[in-house]
Computed example of a mutant assay.
Amino acid sequence: MRALSLRPDRPGSLAVTDVPDPEPAEGELLVEGLAVGVCGTDREIIAGEYGTAPPGRDRLVLGHESLGRVRSAPDGSGFASGDLVVGVVRRPDPEPCGACAHGQFDMCRNGRYTERGIKELDGYASEAWRVPAEYAVRLDPALSEVGVLLEPTSVVAKAWEQVDLVGGRSWFEPERVLVTGAGPIGMLAAMIGAQRGLDVHVLDVVTDGPKPDLVRRLGATYHHDGVAEAVRDSEPDVVIEATGVSSVIFEAMGATNHYGVVCLTGVSSAGRSLRVDLGALNREIVLENDAVVGSVNANQRHYRAAADALTMADQDWLAGLITRRVPLAEFEKAFQPEPDDIKVVLTL
């Protein structure tokens, strides 16, 4: 069968290759691959910045944002042929840390976890794949066109859970949220904020294209003139930061209401300098009982919450997030950014 694979240690090695058909082990589903989403993590692996092939192999099958349809399932697994499914990305380490041992492998504390399409496990960018039933999530059949958004939605479902846990230190009933960045993570974070009944504000840099319209269709407010302007009339109780841009991060950390919670989901590039008044920022965070927390990855609980959020969402709005669909044979086009891109999907 065909799969999109590469040598993680060799930039420019990405290619469609022939790989053996998957043979499901006991307790595993055999799944027909329908689509994979493309994200910044994939681009960094392609560039040779990180990524690890399975032990004893040179090449890694790419793809961690999956969507597939079950071909066969073991008896008693809870799945059946024809089910629409997504595979969980991360697996706990073989000798689990405390978090992994308690099913919270998204919070692994020793770094020995593995990840499909990223670290030591083949990804989902193939015409078929196998997955243990406990690491598969069933989707509503109505999500057949947009279910590939589940993995990034699981990331923001976890981010919102982290906000709730941190806010739960005391009485916490947030009213306003500022989402910085209108890429897939930011848009999906805004969607969940709207589902929670919050006053949602989204900040990005573009002034036209699909992003402003999609934000307005959520009933949210779109901003493009920077953090200070976005919070001028109403300080947010929550900030979901999805840009990874250092200047935006520091401004957002100092822009919240009292007892504000900032959840960082964007990964910053190293090596960039920024002059900030860290003393003033520290003073504000301490005196206002603010909190800043980082969040990445997700476990099964977050995938299930994400599946519920996608089912509740307007399907036409979700479809608007997928701005390009590229067939596997033309995979190079999927990794060449275009101005109006939000989410690019490879069809398998």
Rank of each mutant, 00 (worst) to 15 (best):
R2W: 04
S13A: 10
P20T: 09
V31R: 06
G40C: 15
D42K: 00
E44D: 06
I46E: 13
Y50H: 13
D58L: 11
L60P: 11
V61A: 05
G63H: 03
E65L: 08
S66G: 04
S72V: 01
S72L: 09
A73M: 09
P74D: 00
D75A: 15
D75M: 09
G76Q: 05
D83S: 05
D83A: 03
D83I: 12
L84W: 05
L84C: 10
V89M: 14
E95Y: 13
E95A: 15
C97R: 05
G98T: 14
G98A: 09
C100L: 04
A101I: 09
H102F: 01
G103H: 10
G103Y: 03
C108R: 01
E115M: 04
R116N: 07
I118T: 11
I118S: 01
Y124G: 01
A125S: 10
P132L: 12
E134A: 07
L139S: 01
D140Q: 05
P141E: 06
P141N: 04
A142S: 13
A142H: 13
S144W: 12
V155L: 06
K158N: 07
W160Y: 10
L165K: 15
V166K: 00
V166H: 10
G167L: 11
G167H: 11
G167S: 07
G168S: 12
S170H: 14
E173G: 11
P174I: 01
R176N: 12
V177R: 10
V179M: 02
T180K: 04
A182E: 10
A182I: 07
G197Y: 15
L198V: 03
D199V: 00
H201E: 00
L203A: 07
V206F: 00
K211L: 05
K211N: 13
K211G: 04
L214D: 08
L218K: 06
L218I: 06
G219C: 11
D225M: 13
G226R: 03
V227P: 00
E229R: 12
E229M: 12
A230C: 00
D237S: 06
V238F: 15
E241G: 02
G244H: 07
V245H: 15
S247C: 08
V248G: 03
I249A: 01
I249H: 06
E251R: 04
E251A: 03
A252F: 12
A255K: 06
T256C: 15
C263G: 11
C263S: 07
L264G: 08
V267G: 02
S269Q: 15
S269E: 15
A270N: 12
V276S: 01
N282V: 05
N282F: 07
L287I: 10
V292G: 09
G294Q: 04
G294K: 01
G294N: 04
S295V: 15
S295T: 08
A298K: 00
R301C: 00
R301E: 02
H302M: 04
H302D: 01
A307W: 05
A309I: 08
A309W: 00
L310S: 02
D316Q: 04
T323K: 05
V326I: 09
E330V: 03
F331Y: 06
K333V: 14
D340L: 00
L348H: 05
